[in-house]
Simulated assay, not measured.
Amino acid sequence: MRIKRVLSAVFLLLFFVLISIGGITGVYAAQSRVFDDADLFTTKEKEEFESTIQSMQQEMNMDVVIATTQDTGGKSAKDYAENFYIERKFGKGSDYRGVLFLIDMDNREMYILPVGKMNRFLTDKRWNAILDDAYEAISGGEYAACARIYLDGVIKYYRAGIPGGQYNYDKETGKISVYRSIEWYEAALAILAAAAAAAAVCGGVTSQYSMKKERGRARVALLAYRANCEFSYSAQNDNLINKTITHVIVPRNNGGNGGSGGGMSSGGRSTTHTSSGRTMGGGGRKF
């Protein structure tokens, strides 16, 4: 009888251990952000990338993904990267902010896909610079080194902050969305202006309810009544004597067009488009 109890306790313990291991494995799989379908990385390299990505996610509050593939199913690197990001439901927050790096061995192309607010940090100039830095490594078959350059570039530009004058240019609609950050002194001035406006309104209401004008008018009326004052009105006509018309020619701005982002400087531009409610940018480089 005692042996049966001991065996039951052992089986029960093993059961709970297996459940715990399964739960941990499930959590790890859910948090995985390295998808090496082309088998380009070693196990140690994938563990390294996963660890780096977790630290980046905590610091940036954005998603970071690495994917490789041998077969895109006939899709371009751009379409494959975007579908991969959407179907796997990557991204943080309501704008699905994050970035995906794809090594496409089918089309021989590497592709960087910034999404949401990440487009503010990874402008066209910046993601092109990352691809420039990674080109030599990927051309030499050093795929892990290429992925490291991508991760280093993303965190570097995030820490550098959103560049001044940054704007998103939607290549499909031509719409320009300028990023505007508020400095502390601007916020202080706004608060002071709001306080002054509120004080003026309150002062006006207080003055009206004190009825100072009405009391003054009552005194004047009383004096007029006592003095038996009389008022007489005379008709007056307003005649238009002179009239001046000023014509102003407003010059038409022909300096920009849809393809150039409205003529604005391209240094801080992020060329984007919308797909499945996500603002997506980026581009690729053949190798």
Rank of each mutant, 00 (worst) to 15 (best):
D132S: 09
D133V: 09
A134N: 01
A134F: 03
A134K: 00
Y135H: 12
Y135C: 01
Y135Q: 10
Y135M: 06
E136Y: 08
A137W: 02
S139V: 08
S139Q: 12
S139N: 11
G140I: 00
G140S: 07
G140H: 02
G141Y: 02
G141M: 02
G141W: 00
Y143P: 02
Y143M: 05
A144G: 12
A144N: 10
C146D: 04
C146P: 01
A147E: 06
A147W: 02
I149Y: 04
Y150E: 03
Y150K: 03
Y150I: 00
L151C: 04
L151K: 04
L151A: 07
D152P: 04
G153D: 04
G153Q: 04
G153R: 04
V154R: 03
I155D: 04
I155V: 15
K156S: 12
K156Y: 14
Y157W: 15
G161C: 07
P163V: 10
G164W: 02
G164Y: 05
G165N: 08
Q166E: 13
Y169F: 14
Y169V: 06
D170V: 03
K171I: 15
E172P: 00
E172Q: 14
T173C: 02
G174A: 03
G174T: 06
G174E: 01
K175H: 06
V178M: 10
Y179N: 07
Y179E: 04
Y179P: 01
I182N: 08
E183F: 08
E183P: 05
E183L: 11
E183N: 07
W184D: 13
W184I: 13
Y185V: 06
Y185A: 05
E186S: 02
E186P: 03
E186G: 07
E186F: 02
E186N: 07
A187C: 00
A188M: 11
A188N: 03
L189D: 05
A190F: 08
A190K: 13
I191M: 12
I191P: 00
L192N: 10
L192R: 12
L192H: 09
L192V: 15
A193L: 15
A193T: 13
A194Y: 03
A195H: 01
A197S: 10
A197T: 11
A197K: 07
A198C: 08
A199N: 07
A199W: 11
A200R: 06
A200D: 07
A200Y: 06
V201R: 11
V201H: 11
C202N: 10
C202I: 15
G204K: 05
G204Y: 13
G204H: 07
G204P: 02
V205G: 06
V205F: 13
T206V: 14
S207P: 00
S207W: 15
S207V: 08
Y209P: 00
Y209G: 00
Y209L: 15
M211K: 15
M211Q: 14
M211H: 14
M211W: 11
K212I: 14
K213E: 09
E214L: 09
R215N: 10
G216K: 13
